[in-house]
Design a protein around this nucleic acid. Structure first.
Lengths: 160, 160
DNA sequence: ATAAATTTATTGGTGCACAAACAATTGAGG
DNA sequence: CCTCAATTGTTTGTGCACCAATAAATTTAT
């Protein structure tokens, strides 16, 4: 009887530990989990993209410009949900790498338009291919349904 | 007949757009989705934790020290999977805020031990309570099974 | 038409995140 | 011992990410 009681207590402690209900460890927080995983995946992309001399964030910007060449700075920032000042600094680096070009908007002198350089146009599809491969590697580790749920939750969280 | 053909083409384009198979938009990449959501959730935590004058990362460090007071710098960095130099700068700020204290390790003069201050001990449980509330708000938006799958995928990604 | 409000991109400042170089200390092998 | 290798934490440098303040241009209101 006592033995049973002890077993029950042990099991309850296990459950609490597993569900992190009373733990003080930060790994119980959604935000912490997200940032940890994001950093890990980011480093993985980073290590692979480094052969092109660019970072993941720079790659996202290039992809967005690739999708719509010559779009406005403002639209670019909006589509990437990125603060304008962050985009400014990324464009500075991409321009120094001669992958991107800023041109004046003939219709609004406050605004500016962003274009890929010829060099970037030649490289970007190869970069995208690499990124897709990395994605595939990640997805392979899960069932389709599992990963679909994962992405659905991400999608829902990115709204609001 | 032609009409049917057109419909099929339209539907196929829809499916491609939905599955992002051929899209150049960066939002198709797992890494991009992760970082976007992470930033969003991070900002949400940040806005709430700001009443205590700390950032999410600082909160994670405080929580980890709260869990095990006086642990070694090295162990702390390892448990948070955080680069040593990052932890150094966070501890600098937490020490300036008088929430944390660095002490020499009597057993190894290279090593140092990290402690919460009295002030931090008084505040940390309230902070943790807030963070749990924020987590709860996020989880409420999904079914239990959905979120469990989400966390399981995160967990699996954070390994290896 | 002109002053005021709004929009657009940049700058400056803070706080991560990480790699590389470094100084101090400890451990191991000769 | 004593040198050489390994470990520990900090510093330095780069790249985001975001806020607040700014300057230039445009729009609105009067």
């Amino acid at each position: 009887m006592e033995n049973t009681q002890q077993k029950i207590e042990l099991l309850m402690r296990c459950i609490k530990a597993l569900t992190n209900e009373t733990s003080r460890n930060p790994s119980k927080y959604v935000c912490y989990k997200l940032s940890r995983v994001m950093r890990k995946v980011h480093r993985y992309y980073e290590g692979n993209l480094s052969q092109y001399g660019i970072t993941p964030s720079q790659f996202y910007v290039l992809s967005a410009v690739w999708e719509k060449d010559g779009l406005k700075f403002k639209e670019l920032a909006k589509s990437l949900e990125m603060d304008g000042s962050t985009l400014t600094s990324i464009l500075d680096r991409l321009e120094r790498l001669e992958l991107v070009e800023r041109r004046n908007d003939p219709e609004d002198r406050r605004s500016l338009l962003v274009f890929l350089t010829e060099q970037a146009k030649q490289q970007i599809s190869e970069m995208a291919h690499l990124a897709e491969k990395l994605d595939q590697e990640i997805k392979e580790r899960f069932t389709e349904e599992e990963f679909a749920t994962f992405e659905r939750v991400l999608e829902k969280l990115s709204l609001d």
